[in-house]
Every structure is written in structure tokens, then in C-alpha cells.
């Protein structure tokens, strides 16, 4: 049974201009899979993540996560569902600036009212794994971008979610830090059997995944599975992207803080 199944989902944003963000999209994600979703800007990738996490509701169609439809849950149950089953990694890390690294990581656990000893043990385990022990008492302003993203990953994993949603996790990192983060995600995926759904622009990032799903204008376009060598996989991703149109290196625009 797939852990996530998207069935004929349509999402329409009403406004001055009605915009169809997703158009009859269907796909499944198996447990323990590492899926990348690619597509040009405005193809509906972020909308898709919002639907899976229940931040947004589909206009029609159904999203099922482990047999539950987030759209059918009451708001409080939805929040509880998110804090148990989902983990998030964002492009701009979104660590809370006034909390220390340790406090940021422990935050999802405190919401669940675990005993302090249990929380301490879990934080210790995850930080040892991600190599964050030395910076536990620093604040996000005092560490590098790569470290920040690793803290964000620790925060996304500390409550042992079944699915981790990542929105451009390497978008704000230099190539070394990006490779480290991707290696880390791959290892966790293999060792813990945690399901990852990653939205990305970056073909290199996508080449770390098991499967790449391409969407265009909100609709399914194509998908490819990885092969033995990452290099050829990367090449095939590039080929599809060139067919897909849009800009291959369509990185997000430069932003001011």
C-alpha cells in the first residue's frame, strides 16, 4: 500500500485571476521511497507540498497519507497529525531566531508533551548522528548555512515522522554544503526507511533520489527511476528538463533579507 497517494487532485486559486495550480494530478509514493518533484517555476510544486501537509485543501480529488485524508480532519487533529507523521525542511531553514539550536530541535517534542529525559535522549541521538553536538547552545545567527540546514533536518527528524517534506532544501546552500545535506538525507532515507518527498529545481539534488517526478503547469508530465550510476541518472534528468521547457537553471531569484 502506498504511504502517500494523490488521486486526481485539482487545486484552483480564486482571485482577481483564477489560477489552476494543479490539474488532475495523480501519483503514489511508496514507503521508504526518496521522491523528487521537479518542474519549472509556477508548475505547482509548492502547492503540492501544501496539500500533502494539509496546509491547503484540494479543490477536488483526494490526498491520502497512510490511509488518512488530511482534508477530513478537524483543525486540532490535523495539527496533531502533522506533529506525529510529518517533518519539514525549508529552503530558508526557518529556524526560530531567538531559540538555541537545541531548543529548535526539541520544539516538536515539547508540543507532544514527552518526558524531559526522553526528549534529552532523542536530541542527543539525533545531534550525534548529524554532528551538531558542538553547536547545541549556539543561536541560528552564529552558525553557517549548512549547519542551519542540518539543524532544520534534525528538527524535522527528531519526532520520527513517517514522511519528511523538503522544499528546495539546498536552494540557499553552496555546493559543498548542498552535497553534505543531500548525502545526509540519502543516508537517513536508507537507514531509517523514512519517506522523503523533495521539491527541487536542482538536477544535482534530484539525482540523489530514487525517482524523479516531473510536473508541468500543474499536470503530470513524466517520471524516471534512478539507475546504477548517478552520473547517467543526472544526464537523463537534464534531458527531460530540456524537453520540459522553461529554464534548466531556473534558480529562484536573488532575494534581499
Amino acid at each position: 500500500m502506498p504511504i502517500v497517494s494523490i488521486e486526481d487532485v485539482i487545486k484552483i486559486y480564486e482571485g482577481k485571476v483564477t489560477h489552476r495550480a494543479l490539474d488532475r494530478l495523480s501519483f503514489d509514493v511508496e514507503e521508504g521511497e526518496f521522491l523528487a518533484v521537479m518542474g519549472p517555476s509556477g508548475s505547482g510544486k509548492t502547492t503540492l507540498l501544501n496539500l500533502i501537509s494539509g496546509i491547503d485543501m484540494p479543490t477536488s480529488g483526494r490526498v491520502m497519507i497512510q490511509g488518512t485524508d488530511p482534508a477530513a480532519l478537524r483543525p486540532d487533529d490535523l495539527a496533531r497529525f502533522r506533529r506525529k507523521e510529518l517533518g519539514f525542511v525549508f529552503q530558508d531553514f526557518n529556524l526560530l531566531r531567538m531559540l538555541t539550536v537545541e531548543e529548535n530541535i526539541v520544539l516538536p517534542l515539547t508540543l507532544d508533551r514527552l518526558p524531559v529525559a526522553e526528549m534529552d535522549a532523542r536530541v542527543k541521538a539525533i545531534t550525534a548522528r548529524l554532528g551538531l553536538e558542538d553547536i547545541l547552545h549556539k543561536r541560528p545567527d552564529e552558525i553557517s548555512g549548512g549547519q542551519e540546514q542540518r539543524v532544520a533536518i534534525a528538527r524535522a527528524l527528531v519526532h520520527r515522522p513517517s514522511i519528511v517534506l523538503a522544499d528546495e532544501p539546498t536552494g540557499n546552500l553552496d555546493s559543498n554544503a548542498a552535497r553534505e545535506v543531500l548525502d545526509l538525507l540519502g543516508t537517513i532515507n536508507r537507514e531509517n526507511r523514512t519517506t522523503f518527498i523533495m521539491v527541487t529545481h536542482d538536477p544535482i539534488a534530484a539525482s540523489y533520489c530514487d525517482r524523479v517526478l516531473f510536473i508541468k503547469d500543474g499536470a503530470y508530465y513524466n517520471e524516471i527511476h534512478k539507475d546504477d550510476r548517478r552520473r547517467t541518472f543526472f544526464q537523463r534528468i537534464l534531458n527531460i528538463l530540456s524537453l520540459l521547457g522553461g529554464n534548466v537553471d531556473d534558480l529562484s531569484s536573488v532575494r534581499l533579507p
Binding site: 496546509i55 495539527a79 496533531r80 506533529r83 519539514f88 525549508f90 526557518n94 526560530l96 508540543l111
Partner: peptide
């Protein structure tokens, strides 16, 4: 702006409305 972004993060971390 900052508070709004923070609220969005907290929502994704599974914070309920009441919290």
C-alpha cells in the same frame, strides 16, 4: 512579516490554533 513566517513554521510543526 517575521512573525507571520514564524507562525507558518509553527503550523507546519504541528502547533494547534489554541497553542
Amino acid at each position: 512579516d517575521r512573525d507571520r513566517r514564524q507562525a507558518a513554521v509553527l503550523k507546519r510543526l504541528g502547533m494547534t490554533e489554541r497553542e
